[in-house]
């Protein structure tokens, strides 16, 4: 089936099999490999992208369902050379180790602070409850999102823990 969609601001037309998963279309056809496959069941969130302004899991979405949609992947999140505040937060607060869950985690976090500019720790933790990380224990991911929210509000983030001891 032919589908047309906008990916990271560029219009894409492609012929796909009806059963092709959106994540495989993004990775294998468009060669945007920042979006990862971690479970194929929607639980881990490594495949999280933005579709028509919502954070969704692309491993349980068919490519044909994205016909006509506007998609942003991790590769399209930064504004040119300027990192998105969440990307900056993950770097500044050691919010990643192996980096495999990171793109999905960042895409989800970007939506959290867009919808709630000043989230509490509890709101952040619940907001990323559908994105699994096996390396960080989530501690520094929470700090990274707090940093990003502060930045996005135009405030100075709290100093890093290792700077206060």
């Amino acid at each position: 089936m032919e589908i047309t969609l906008t990916v990271n601001g560029e219009k894409v037309t492609a012929d796909v099999e009806p059963r092709t998963l959106l994540v495989h279309f993004i990775r294998d056809e468009l060669r945007l490999t920042g979006t990862h496959v971690g479970c194929e069941t929607s639980y881990c969130g490594a495949c999280t992208i933005h579709l028509n302004g919502e954070a969704i899991k692309s491993c349980t979405t068919l490519a044909v369902q994205a016909d006509g949609a506007e998609i942003t992947t991790i590769e399209g999140l930064a504004d040119g050379e300027t990192l998105h505040p969440v990307q900056e937060g993950f770097w500044e607060r050691h919010g990643l180790q192996c980096g495999f869950c990171t793109p999905g985690m960042i895409m989800q976090a970007a939506k959290i602070i867009e919808e709630n500019p000043d989230p509490s720790e509890d709101e952040i933790r619940h907001g990323i409850d559908g994105n699994l990380c096996r390396c960080t224990g989530y501690h520094n991911i929470v700090k990274a999102i707090e940093y990003a929210a502060a930045k996005a509000r135009g405030e100075e983030p709290e100093p890093a823990e290792w700077e206060t001891v």
């Binding site: 999140l77 990307q87 890093a160």
Partner: peptide, 23 residues
């Protein structure tokens, strides 16, 4: 020193390369 990781710029941009990305 708690210097920031040099691995991260690629990984936070979705440009880190993993084995399944090799095609």
């Amino acid at each position: 020193g708690a210097i920031r990781r040099r691995e991260d710029p690629a990984l936070i941009a979705g440009q880190g390369l993993y084995t399944d990305d090799v095609a």
